[in-house]
Amino acid sequence: MHIMEGFLPSPWWQIWFIISAPFVIMGFYALRKLVRENREALPLLAVAGAFVFVLSSLKLPSVTGSCSHPTGTGLGAVLFGPFIASVLALIVLVYQALFLAHGGISTLGANLFSMGVAGPVVAYAIFIAGKKFGINEYVTIFFAAALANIVTYVVTSLQLALAFPAEAGGFMASFIAFGAIFAITQIPLAIIEGLVIALVFKYIIQLKPEILIRIGVITADRAAKLREGWA
């Protein structure tokens, strides 16, 4: 999902900076609120951030014969909402842009939008919808994290297709070409990411359900049921 340094022409890189900026600003406000009101949730925040660090450092081989990475943003989005997940993604993207030449400073806005905004927003929406309809939390978290991953790469394909429409076929032809590079590679990785994050959620439920209840991720009633087993 990293669009490399200099690979987005003007005006696209500026546009994506402008679109992403409000999410990061909202994220810093949300973080300040969290730090003031829920200090005991900070270790959980550290875990969510650390997850993005670990998962986005793993480049996994996929069925298409190329390698790509999970994003890890689904966990942060489900636990703390999409704005805080944007900030977590920003930290990782800056690290990778500065030290690894993965992504870049000029493309930071675009990469942040795909990984730190679009993915987390989808994950959060799925989790909220699942809660509303009373679907098992492990199932919703699996889909939230897996789709956050896929959506990230679909958005990257979209961003590149907008900036580089094909001469023959225009935007759609280009979108399909970039989608073939990114999105298909991503499907098996998304499944693994969804499962791993569901597993981590299980351990959080077992060790510190009170934090999840306090920040409103699940009700006390559901936490007690999930601790006993699947339901």
């Binding site: 490399m4 993965h102 990257t156």
Partner: peptide, 9 residues
């Protein structure tokens, strides 16, 4: 097994 990012570039 190259990176998808590089393939797009």
């Amino acid at each position: 097994w190259g990176g998808a990012d590089g393939a797009a570039a």
